[in-house]
Design a protein around this nucleic acid. Sequence first.
DNA 1: CTGAAAGCGCTTACAG
DNA 2: CTGAAAGCGCTTACAG
Lengths: 345, 345
Amino acid sequence: MTGGRTRPKRPTIADVAAEAGVSRTTVSHGLSGSGRVDPQTRERVRAAAARIGYRPSPRAQALRSGRSHVIAVASSMHPAIAGGAAHLGFFMEIAAAAAERGFEQGYVLALVPPVTSDRFGALTEMALDGVLVVEPSAGDPVVDRLRAERIPFVTVGRAPDAAEEDLVVDLNVEETARLMLGHLRDRGCRQVLLLVGDQDRESFRAARQVWRELAPDAGWDIEAVTAAESGGEAAGEAAVRDALTTRPDIDGIAAWVDAFAVGAVRAVTGSGRTVPGDVAVLTRYDGLRAQSCEPRLTAVDLGLGPIARIAVDLLLDRIEDPERLDRTTPRSPAPRLVQRESTAS
Amino acid sequence: MTGGRTRPKRPTIADVAAEAGVSRTTVSHGLSGSGRVDPQTRERVRAAAARIGYRPSPRAQALRSGRSHVIAVASSMHPAIAGGAAHLGFFMEIAAAAAERGFEQGYVLALVPPVTSDRFGALTEMALDGVLVVEPSAGDPVVDRLRAERIPFVTVGRAPDAAEEDLVVDLNVEETARLMLGHLRDRGCRQVLLLVGDQDRESFRAARQVWRELAPDAGWDIEAVTAAESGGEAAGEAAVRDALTTRPDIDGIAAWVDAFAVGAVRAVTGSGRTVPGDVAVLTRYDGLRAQSCEPRLTAVDLGLGPIARIAVDLLLDRIEDPERLDRTTPRSPAPRLVQRESTAS
DNA sequence: CTGAAAGCGCTTACAG
DNA sequence: CTGAAAGCGCTTACAG
């Protein structure tokens, strides 16, 4: 008993085999339930495994099976938007729900932080079985990378340049746009400013399209305005400040990004106007930003939780059967307008 | 050329060896930079690898090295608190910062959702190199599990029953308690109610202790009140409603959980009193909840981002050198009181 | 400087 | 029903 005690190595399947007096094959079958094993033998194997505290090595299983049981959620959105000052919002809400669903199914969900393109390589250095991509833009670098590396992925929201074979969970962008812009119209807004991000995303496209549909009858004639997604609240504020100078008749603002909406309120207030008295403001994503803004913002409940779950299930289907042809996606929950003070009449 | 095209298998190190006309050993050395390889040979290997699009298999590397390069962040806090209605808050703020730091270091961060104890087994079925545990309670089941499985972990905040050898990043609980309760005292509160969660956490202990220190001089004589962490805002509201009935002289409330603070404000308002006119309210964590509450809540900026980074670095040190004895932890940033309307004089 | 061989810990045809 | 053997794709002593 001289010499330091060596750290006890964790038992392997060979140890169980020795303990139970059977082969490794039989241990594997006995423990996993695959193949036919005599019930008595199986019981012996189980007991032996329990006795020595055996737990199969996930790393070995991963190599053998090609599955790491790790999925990830990624976004090409700029950190200022994806995370926000307090690192919260759209992205994290999806991540939290996806993590929960994944865990239920035996997968762990990794958070890929918003990174610059030179770090995308790292994405494929990790053993990811699949990836959820949140609101991809046209030519999204994350999507490109995933496609090139043949890593299964599902987009939450359709990329404007989505390929036929891409798996997509719809964000109901058109319906959402109708809810928002229809609300401003019904409320009687005479001149509605549309404020979207500078990336080419499907939700922005839908916003523009629906705006154009409604504009003629409603008498709206302002061009949509764009703000840098990387600019966050300040960018939204600047854009609206400029717009109000050029077009003092604006009495409604639909800001597609919640950070922009907060900036929009500041710009309106800063110009001596009131919300909603002089200008009504609403935004798409009903997160804490919308709820914490003063006044509280009318926004859309997109059902991000259920949507994230659907996306995870779809991704796991694809991972577990990469050849399946069925690409029908369960319907996403319908978006719902949550009216608050910012558009009160 | 009959038969369907078979899916091209991704190249392995053997393919590179063949392409470059060297052994697998040399490819491995050449690509990783380990061992000595003739520069010319190395270049040939690099070129061959690039030509056939070789990427080392992370799963094989994981088995060989025992490192999956996946770390996780977990919490035993109840979902209602850890996640909250919109799935945000304390936990996610730490997760976001930790994910960023981990990614920089070549690790991916997984989100372990708040789960019931019967699912903790799943924790060890995943190939995790290490885990960050957020604010463990005494007897925390996640910590127990990790210890039993010898999985490296770092706690963010000290467990009341932390072992000597545990790695801990301090949350400065005592300093935080002094900031909060000192502020209420300095503001002139005559009777301060302390509201903490029903789990045994270090931060709650510090709150009680500092309260007891200040109470004699300040003339405070109410026992601290506890609310079920699983009850969220409603639990906080109920607890404060009861307290106000028994002790109508309460003019200050320090709610250690932000959800409780929101409930506290409701209870105060619901009793016909005003915040901060009749009762001042403050809370520990300065998240969106504190900022979005009406009125906005005085709270403490704990520096969760920097703290999460420190925790990740500590965890990776431990993972990469499990035997190291040095347990000194970098100092966490000092907490800072953020004064808002809820405690205005 | 280069390579043959062992081995990380499993699972899965394949024989018996 | 049970087991010997191959193999997933690497890396690392060890020889040469």
